[in-house]
Nucleic acid binder design. Structure first.
Lengths: 124, 124
DNA sequence: CTGTATCCACTTTGATACTG
DNA sequence: CAGTATCAAAGTGGATACAG
């Protein structure tokens, strides 16, 4: 690590301040349910709102809507609404969102190592 | 993405529930100032408490102590206290903490792409 | 079916003062 | 120097009811 990869200059996005790019990334994926949502959309592809709800029963409707809105406004998730009756809304990952998946997998692998170290003899 | 890399089985750590390993990782690095602290220790090596304070002036003393305690109890940061007068405490990354650095760099690179796309003509 | 709106509990963060 | 204690402010999440 000879170069400075993440300059710590104060910046701001949507009114929230941050100092390094890692913080920005965490602002976008750090919501309580966002990793789960991203993972769901990443592994299953396009999902309707109701399908997401059934996939993540622990998430209340309010939070699911809210987190999806934030993911959408950060350009990670694409929302496509069809003004039919009853209404139908499809959610999927954008290119930007898909670019995050390999990193989430690395994070996941790292965390699974941590779990394995903390609880030896319970490899899965 | 043909395999399921992060099984979404409910688990718990320190009394907090989570469902996938990515969430666990976010629990450990998702604190408001943790990325900054990890980055500081990653790029500068061992730092005393006061050096960290000067490096991160925006972080209050209370928060710095608190986040360091959590990083320590998650095994990411090593705390070495010398009972001298005045007291002296050194902080550094553990092996586990260092394992996170390449991933933080990927996250950082991804976020800088996002910044570049959002604000064309301001590459840095 | 896919949302909003409201209210409340809980948690997190900050400001300030004090200590070994 | 490196904290701890306390209180107040702000943010977050959940339950419930209602709407197009």
């Amino acid at each position: 690590m000879t170069r400075e990869h993440a300059p710590c200059t104060p910046r701001s996005r949507n009114g929230r301040d941050y100092f390094c790019s890692v913080e920005l990334a965490l602002m976008m994926i750090g919501g309580k349910w966002k990793p789960l949502i991203l993972w769901g959309l990443g592994t299953r592809g396009t999902l309707r709102f109701g399908e997401l709800r059934r996939l993540l029963p622990a998430v209340t409707q309010k939070m699911l809507t809210q987190q999806l809105r934030e993911l959408e406004s950060d350009g990670l998730v694409l929302r496509e609404a069809y003004p039919t009756l009853p209404p139908r809304v499809d959610y999927s990952l954008t290119e930007r969102g898909r670019g995050l998946l390999p990193i989430l997998e690395s994070l996941s692998a790292w965390a699974r190592d941590v779990e394995a170290q903390d609880q030896p003899g319970r490899p899965d």
